[in-house]
Computed example of a mutant assay.
Amino acid sequence: MARRSDPTAPFVVATPALAKLVERWRNHLARERRLADKTVEAYARDVDQFLVFLTSHLGHPATLGDVAKLKITDVRAFLASRRNAGAGSPTVSRNIAGVRSFIRFLEQDGEADGSAVRAIRPPRRKRSLPRPLTPERARDVAEPANAMDEEPWIAARNAAVLTLLYGCGLRISEALALTRSEAPRGDGAALRIRGKGGKERLVPVLPVVGEAIAAYLRLCPYAPGPDGPLFLGARGGPLNPRMIQRAMVRLRSALGLPDTATPHALRHSFATHLLAAGGDLRTIQELLGHASLSTTQVYTGVDTERLMAAYDAAHPRAR
């Protein structure tokens, strides 16, 4: 029987038959749709929260019949309960997406009618624009001479990671997942990256990226082998992303950068600077590994904001 995520929960939230369908759906997401583990966990948590609510709402453990004949008022009551619990618009939107995914799975086997869930429009999300660094500041962050650490090899490692994030537009998780055999050489060869959901993409490697990696490898005291991680921690194990985040905090202080200057901001900077230099959105989408062009289009807002700021500062009639 399915219970609350909290093992101390005192009541059953789904009948055995419904619980088995939830498990089949989770396996479907992971094995057939090949969604990322964290996405599967988030969707499963959404459905778990929905079943907890439905059990309380109906006064008995949720059954397949209850889910199959959901009314719009039931779904709206669930969303209201999430709002009352303090969930913001992004969380509520994902809650809807998780429940919709499960209902859609049941619909494929004729087990449910998803019209009530489809009729609910997710709350409008205020999309915040990424905060990239200026090209000069991005180069300063990736400059090996600015890397601060008592151990030269760790300073070189941090500089190599940050150069890779900015030079190739990688997520920090993608950079730290590279093995020694995958080390970028900067000789014109493209880097094969496995991104979210297992989606692969090819990213060109600039010479400066290959040089930063080579400098780090020359100084690194550990040799884990070709299948070992490219970036290592102080004791020779896989590098924890928190170490790069801490290095960025030190750089912010030393270079006078804003709090928005994070490792991920280097990926934003990569995209924004390409767009400003005339790169087209489709190419930038491929380089970033975005599944949807709408995700990449947010950078047009960044570039427009930058242009308007320059206009306001320079045009005589703007004052």
Rank of each mutant, 00 (worst) to 15 (best):
A190R: 15
V92A: 01
P184D: 07
L274S: 09
A247F: 02
G301H: 11
Y166S: 00
A271T: 02
R83E: 05
R139T: 02
A254V: 10
R242I: 11
L266Q: 03
A42G: 04
V52A: 00
P130Y: 04
G167M: 00
A62E: 02
L288C: 06
A156W: 01
L164N: 01
E32S: 10
A112E: 02
R127Y: 08
P238Y: 05
A85W: 02
T63N: 08
P241L: 13
A30Q: 12
P184W: 01
H315K: 12
P16D: 13
Q49P: 00
L54I: 03
A155D: 01
L162H: 03
D37S: 13
A223C: 05
V298I: 15
A189N: 11
D6A: 05
T134V: 11
D66Q: 06
R252E: 05
M248F: 07
T63P: 01
A277E: 11
R127S: 14
A291D: 15
F102I: 05
L230K: 04
P122M: 01
A177V: 05
D66T: 04
G289K: 01
L54C: 02
P258S: 07
D259Y: 08
V161Y: 02
P7H: 07
E211K: 12
D259S: 15
A223I: 03
P238R: 13
H268L: 10
R317Y: 13
A85H: 04
R242G: 14
H315C: 14
G65I: 02
K20E: 15
Y166M: 04
E150R: 12
H290T: 09
M148V: 12
D303T: 12
S93A: 15
A212H: 01
L133P: 00
L307D: 13
R137K: 15
L51R: 00
P152C: 06
A276G: 12
P7G: 10
A9R: 10
R267T: 04
P135L: 11
V13H: 00
I154L: 14
R121F: 06
R171V: 02
L133N: 00
P221W: 05
R246A: 12
L21E: 15
